[in-house]
Amino acid sequence: MSAPTTPTLLYLDNVTVTFDGFRALNALSLAIDHHEMRAIIGPNGAGKTTMMDVITGKAKPDDGQAVFDGSHDLTALDEATIAELGIGRKFQTPTVFEHHTVEDNILLALKADRRPFSALLSRRDKVERERIDALLERVRLNRHRHRLAAELSHGQKQWLEIGMLLAQEPKLLLVDEPAAGMTDQETADTADLLRDIAKTRAVVVVEHDMTFVRDLGVKVTCLHEGSVLAEGPLDVVSANERVIEVYLGR
């Protein structure tokens, strides 16, 4: 069997993940292009988070292929190696390093040599400081840079995590429910930020908030019971009878 390759950035083919016989993903196929932004919708338990687990190496599929950026077989790699290849992930519940300052959270995420001895000897240079400044500016946390991440509000933590993702300079960003728990203003700002990010890299956003998805204005994939139910522009997908039945029309 020759190694699979993909012309698209990410290619999932026939991916199946089972938990005790239950198919969280059921022959899921999906392709994300370079610099594409995609919104993923679907009811709770549809398998959206599990799909991200497969892409980031947290879950290993029973069957199927996951290929990234040419010929990297994601199913054979561990989380850290996948992250180094250029896949960044934002979790459903914001996870930042609470005992570190905002600035150090960004520093840790910054693209750099990840080996322990390089970290031991690394010293913050001018380039790195400027990168950190720019990123803090972008996620509007400059004023809070010396505070512990634990002291931030929920919305600020979400943004800090997005800042950390950007610091990694990934080719593909996976963002799981970024608007959850945000105010309307924060939600709109987040949509703006993600659209801006998507100009230079591919972004996959999982979101329940339909206003948010509408704000993004990108191609939508609706998952249901572990496979793709419908795919296309939001208007088309939301007019789909099956989508209305299992998701929108609840």
Binding site: T56, K58, D78, E79, A80, T81, A83, E84, G88, R89, F91, T95, V96, F97, E98, L108, A109, R114, R115, M164, Q168
Partner: peptide
């Protein structure tokens, strides 16, 4: 946050 650290690319 061990798993978060892995997802940042640290082994």
């Amino acid at each position: 946050a061990e798993s978060r650290t892995r997802f940042l690319g640290y082994h």
